[in-house]
Design a protein around this nucleic acid. Sequence first.
DNA 1: TGCAAAAATTGAAACGTTTCACGTGAAAAA
DNA 2: TTTTTCACGTGAAACGTTTCAATTTTTGCA
Lengths: 320, 320
Amino acid sequence: MKVATLKDVAKEAHVSLATASYALNDDERIKEATRKKVKEVAKRLKYVPNGSARLLRQKQSHRIIIFVSSFGGPIYQEILEYIYQKLQINNYEMLVCNGKSAQSILSEKNYDGIINFDATIKTSILKEASEYNFPIIDTTRNWENSKIISLPLRGKKPVYEIINMAIKEGYKSFAYVHGSLDSYDDLHRYGGFKKALDEANLLPSAIMYGNFTNTGGYDAIKAYLKDHKELPEVIFFANDEMAIGAMDYLKKVNYDLKMVKIIGFDNIQLGKFYNPSLTTIEIDRNNWTTQIVNILLQSLNSLAKEEYICKYKIIRRETF
Amino acid sequence: MKVATLKDVAKEAHVSLATASYALNDDERIKEATRKKVKEVAKRLKYVPNGSARLLRQKQSHRIIIFVSSFGGPIYQEILEYIYQKLQINNYEMLVCNGKSAQSILSEKNYDGIINFDATIKTSILKEASEYNFPIIDTTRNWENSKIISLPLRGKKPVYEIINMAIKEGYKSFAYVHGSLDSYDDLHRYGGFKKALDEANLLPSAIMYGNFTNTGGYDAIKAYLKDHKELPEVIFFANDEMAIGAMDYLKKVNYDLKMVKIIGFDNIQLGKFYNPSLTTIEIDRNNWTTQIVNILLQSLNSLAKEEYICKYKIIRRETF
DNA sequence: TGCAAAAATTGAAACGTTTCACGTGAAAAA
DNA sequence: TTTTTCACGTGAAACGTTTCAATTTTTGCA
């Protein structure tokens, strides 16, 4: 019933604790014969090393923990699967955990590194954990002057670029539809939007909120048109869903879609087939994931960190 | 840089190691004042107990590990979310991990219990782990004479029931379409199918394989009709997807769907709206999940184990 | 055969907790 | 005053490893 310990193995094999340990860890100083003997005994006794004890000594768990805000969800599926593969190759195990448990899990200090995908996790918790001396990669917000490595999906540059393009083409009035102000992704995108306008000495003609959802976009535009007769020339939506929701409404009230330029973000399937097809920005998620793991692995080996460069594509279709 | 240990706290608070430990764990024997002092120092030094050390001593991690075969996937989403909630209430943390890592993770012995959803995990690994003295719940196969608790989604009874119903109604030729022979769920369902036939002294007129997918069902029926002029009277598919794939093909070649009775399993959304609507069996997944957690929690407290009873509904629609 | 060098083995400390079993000292009871 | 009780603290062992430093054994060579 009781699980065999190294001591049991050592006794049974008539060697010292040290020898047993070295033998099982294939240390060269142990004679081939003894090593074999010890291993045999270990097998017979079904010996399995105790993780805590080992960790307590050598402080390397080869475990990476990932915080997510919810299980399932199509984004995670591919991302997690990819990260898992990559970590396996590099001899790390991956454990996934709800961000709500972060505090408790982190306090164990049983992990060699963490990647955070949960935007709702408290900043203070991560900050505290950053003192524990293992790499933390946070994909949900920006950290300055911290050991925490920020790797949000940066949308600033591509948004800047497309708005700039619109300005160059002569448009003058621009609106931005937020998803949620809690979202760092959103803030990034807004940053790009704002920068382009600032440089052209323009002010946003409207700021709306659509909660990242279809109906949110629908309602936002509906509300706007209640107060105004006309839409701004160009409307940037923080994601495609909202843009499509908005167009749904515009079509319903027979607003001429030619009169407004609409830009989304994400490049979801539907945007391509929608009528009119939606102009949008696509971020290369695979590239992002790759970078996350690479940078984590580098930090684990404390190599110099390479800069993350966000790859993206502007996909221009009918709406702009 | 170095993280404060209990020793540091004790020294700084001018008390012994023991006192520090007791104070932080709210032991009654320590005077209120000292307790407060120690806690203050601990806070100041940002002390966080070391998980491994604690675990090494007290052998209770309050961690449950869940093995899955892949992250994401709509089934998991709700199941995991539910299990997480329930475990939290009972003061356990939940970690999710790819079944491929089971061996390594289990050998740590750092977990108080496990739930397995990964059918591909090796039987020997679970068996070995069952010696480690923590409850294991396996939802993917049947264990006899083992400490491992089997809790597969048992489909045997409802399948038996519906096939029996068909026999009573006078049908004589039956086919079964497997998803995959590796699936214990599938085997369970087949068990019910076979039992009904056996009792009526009938033999299956066909056994096919459809890989649990739409196209698999499509291809299976297509292949069958290449060799035979007619389908059996009743075809049972191990899941709805395959049944619908098969009907897609039959519609395409203008086979009269009235000539064949089709039964699926799972009650997916589409089955209801498909034309003709699909007769199927629905297992109460929530009930299943509840039971899994309940039984795990009971085992953790080593209470007597209640028997799991699988709740299901036969949903008769147009195809049978 | 002797002796240094190399190879193999080992004792014991260390990791950071928890907790048993035993002090203290002071107040209460005798 | 002496004994008992009690509240509060503490020393040290234990958990199961790894690993340093020291010791023993074997080997190679003159």
